[in-house]
Amino acid sequence: MKRLILNFLIFITFITYFNKNIFAENIYVDLELVLAVDVSSSVDDEEYQLQIRGVGAAFRHPDIIAAIESTGGNGIAVAMVQWSDNEEQALVGGWHIIKDVSDAAEYARIIRRAPRIIAGGQTSIAGALTFSIEQINNNNIDSSRKVIDISGDGRANNGVHPMKIRDIALEQNITINGLVIINEEPFLDGYYERGVIGGRGGFMMIAEDYRDYAAMILQKLLREIGMPVS
C-alpha cells in the first residue's frame, strides 16, 4: 500500500513539474498588439459596427497577411479590448496568434462577430491603457515589440490623466499608437499627441469620422505590423 502511495505521489510530482514547464514557456511572436476600441456612450451601435467590420476587413487584406507572413514564422499576437469608463474594460475573445492567411481569416471572423460587451459609459483612456498593459503582461507571450493601438473620439472625462499610465507603459517598453476620430472633438489629435501616444516609433492617425475608420485602421496596422525589427 505504501509503495502504491509513493508511486502515486511521484507520478503527481512528475505531472505537476511537467505541466509547469509547459505553461512556464512563453510563446514568442514578432509583435504583441492590443486593439483598444472605444465603446463609450459617444459611440453608437452603427459606429461600433464600422469599427469591428473595419478591423475584420483589415485582417483579410493581402498586404496585412504579407506583413504577418514576413515575420519569419513567428507571427503576431492580437487581442481586442473594448473600453469606456475607469471600471469598464473587456478583453474580446482572448489573444490570437496569427501566422498566416487562415489564422488571419479566422481572427477576422471572430472580430466581425464580436458583440459589444460594454454598452456605454464615460471615457477613461487611463483605464483602457491600464487594462491593456495588464493583458500584455499576463498573456504568456513574449515579443520584441509590444503595442497598444488605442482608438477613441473623446478626451478622458473619467479616471486619472492618461499621461500617467502612458509613462508607465513606456517604462515597460510598450508603445502606444493612437487612432483619433475627430467627429465630435476637432482638436482631439493635439490631446492624444501630448498625453496619450508615445514610445518607440509611436504615432497617431486621424479619422474624420467612423466611416473613415476602416481605411485608417488598415494603414495603421500595416505600419504597426510591417515595421521592421531594429
Binding site: R155, E185, P186, F187, G190, Y191, R194
Partner: peptide
C-alpha cells in the same frame, strides 16, 4: 503655446 490654444478652444467648444 499651441497646446494652450487647443485646450482653450476645446473648452470653449
Amino acid at each position: 503655446n499651441d497646446y494652450v490654444k487647443n485646450a482653450a478652444i476645446s473648452t470653449l467648444g
